[in-house]
């Protein structure tokens, strides 16, 4: 527990909040929910230039069906 608390403290203290935001953003992209989370009227974020990354189309969530 102490180790986890220390790790979190270091992450927050060293201004690594961006790291957390990047992780959450990547997770959203992985789940295909990024476009769904975009507020109405705003465009979804640009698709990644990574050759294997496929951003879900706007308004569509990832569905493994």
């Amino acid at each position: 527990m102490l180790a986890i608390a220390a790790m979190l403290a270091v992450v927050l203290w060293s201004g690594q909040g961006n790291w957390l935001r990047r992780q959450v953003g990547l997770n959203l992209q992985a789940t295909g929910l990024e476009a769904m989370s975009t507020p109405p009227g705003k465009a979804a974020s640009k698709p990644s230039t990574h050759p294997t990354i496929k951003t879900a189309p706007k308004g569509k969530g990832f569905c493994p069906t």
């Binding site: 992780q23 959450v24 953003g25 990547l26 997770n27 959203l28 789940t31 295909g32 929910l33 769904m36 989370s37 969530g61 990832f62 569905c63 493994p64 069906t65």
Partner: peptide
């Protein structure tokens, strides 16, 4: 999920 979908859980539950 609009606010929390980017956060991983610890259980087996489909995000679709």
């Amino acid at each position: 999920r609009t606010w929390t979908a980017g956060i991983p859980s610890c259980v087996f539950h489909c995000y679709a």
